[in-house]
Design a protein around this nucleic acid. Structure first.
Lengths: 154, 154
DNA sequence: ACGGAATAGATGATGTGTCATGTAGGTTGA
DNA sequence: TCAACCTACATGACACATCATCTATTCCGT
């Protein structure tokens, strides 16, 4: 950190635009999900992962790695979703420490209802603004940054 | 929402990569700021805006518009920052409803300490992974999405 | 077989963000 | 001038995220 290189003008502009977009896009997606189905983006992600798997059932630690969430975040979040009847917890016979999270019928219905509107919103607010080359560029660029993040933080 | 167009494979990949990057980058930047200076990204943004202005003093509503935050978010956040001694609130003579937020000495020192490390981290984790064309592409692309968001949500 | 280390998970405290609502002071037009 | 309205700001309730910590179980080397 001795003599920090500042960002040049292009980087500044890009960074500010990115921060603005990131904040507004996230807020808009959250609002849509909330208004349409009373779900948060976090709920949505959990439900998607559970839906993608036979029996709609996963060990919390699997879910955690898939979501790349902190363990306690997942635990708290599952408690809230359980309280709302979207998932249940079950005992795990194989591993006495462990558990299962299972999609309830209500959870399945929630994600089924939510998905079309959510995807449509992502498309309408994001991809409809971009050409295919830009999508490709974004994919490339984010992947490079992710590699850097993985290298740095683990 | 009748027959929603799903996302194509490229869009799927780009979207997932974007979500991952967004989450991890935000978390990494927050952790760095927290570890180095006991500040959050939100604190940082508030302090930057106050630093950029003569007397380090703004009306909350000006700050709110600059940050594009919800009004109550700013109000709560200022309360927390005030409690930690980073800002103060002052009366506004001109407008009986209004107030001023002022940077304290501690606030000024915090941002001065924080800035180099933060910028360095942004560079290290983000811009060092990208070429100039990619920065340009990102800037272009985010600007287009922002235009769409503004058109949609106000 | 056992003791230490690693793993699975829950929990409480605290900071953060949103929504709904409240309050007081400005503004405007009949 | 005064009623209707708008604007600036605060607050309480609640959802969400992180950190530190705790418990229980499994794993692994000796």
């Amino acid at each position: 950190m001795d003599t920090p290189r500042w960002l040049d003008d292009d980087q500044q502009r890009a960074w500010r635009a990115y921060l603005r977009m990131q904040a507004q896009l996230g807020a808009a997606l959250n609002r849509q999900l909330q208004a349409a189905c009373n779900l948060s983006l976090a709920d949505y992600d959990v439900l998607v992962h559970l839906t993608d798997v036979p029996d709609g059932r996963l060990r919390p630690y699997e879910l955690q790695r898939a979501l790349e969430w902190e363990q306690s975040r997942l635990s708290h979040h599952l408690s809230r979703m359980q309280r709302r009847g979207l998932v249940e917890r079950q005992e795990c016979a194989d591993d006495g420490r462990g558990a299962f999270v299972v999609l309830t019928q209500a959870g399945r219905e929630a994600i089924t209802t939510a998905a079309p509107g959510h995807v449509e919103t992502v498309r309408a607010l994001f991809f409809d603004a971009l050409g295919p080359e830009q999508v490709e560029a974004l994919q490339q660029l984010t992947t490079q940054v992710l590699a850097r993040l993985d290298a740095a933080g683990g």
